[in-house]
Simulated assay, not measured.
Amino acid sequence: MGEQEIPSTLRRLWGRTERPRRGPKASLSVQRIVAAAAQLADAEGLGAVSMARVAESLGFSAMALYRHVASKDELLALLADHLAAELAMPEHADDWRSGLEAWTRVQIVAALARPWFLDLPLAVLPPGPHRMRWMEAAFAMLRGVGLTGEEKLAIIGLLAQHVLAEARVQSEAGRAAAADVRRTRGLPADTSESELDPADLAAANPMHDFEAVLRHLAGPGEYPEMAAALAEAGPFPTGTPDVDDEIDFGLGIVLDGVEAYVRRRSA
Rank of each mutant, 00 (worst) to 15 (best):
M89W: 01
P90C: 05
G174Q: 08
A93C: 11
S266V: 00
A154P: 03
T191C: 04
A137M: 00
G146E: 15
G252Q: 00
A229W: 11
E259L: 04
I33Y: 00
V30I: 13
K72E: 15
V49F: 11
D200L: 11
L76K: 06
D209L: 13
I156F: 06
K72P: 12
V49D: 03
Y66R: 15
A35Q: 13
A41G: 00
G250A: 03
P127E: 07
A64H: 07
A36W: 08
P241V: 01
M207P: 00
I156K: 01
W103C: 04
L10W: 02
R215A: 14
G221K: 11
T238Y: 03
E91D: 08
E136S: 14
G2M: 10
E136Y: 02
A179F: 09
L158H: 04
A202K: 05
D81T: 04
I6G: 07
R53S: 15
A35L: 13
A179D: 15
A178T: 01
M51F: 00
R133V: 08
V109F: 07
E18V: 07
A204W: 12
P220W: 06
T148N: 09
F117R: 10
H216G: 06
P24W: 04
M89G: 00
L122Y: 04
D73S: 15
P206R: 08
A160K: 00
A48K: 04
T148Y: 08
A231V: 00
E86Y: 01
L217Y: 10
G174M: 04
R182L: 04
P7M: 01
A62P: 12
H68A: 11
M63E: 15
R263Q: 07
W14T: 00
A199T: 05
E3L: 12
D245M: 11
R32K: 13
A102N: 10
G59N: 08
M1E: 14
G99S: 13
V124T: 15
A154T: 00
A260M: 06
E211N: 06
A167Q: 09
P127K: 01
F139R: 14
P206S: 05
V124Y: 13
M63Y: 14
R264Q: 12
E3T: 10
A48T: 03
Q161T: 00
A176V: 02
W14R: 10
A70P: 10
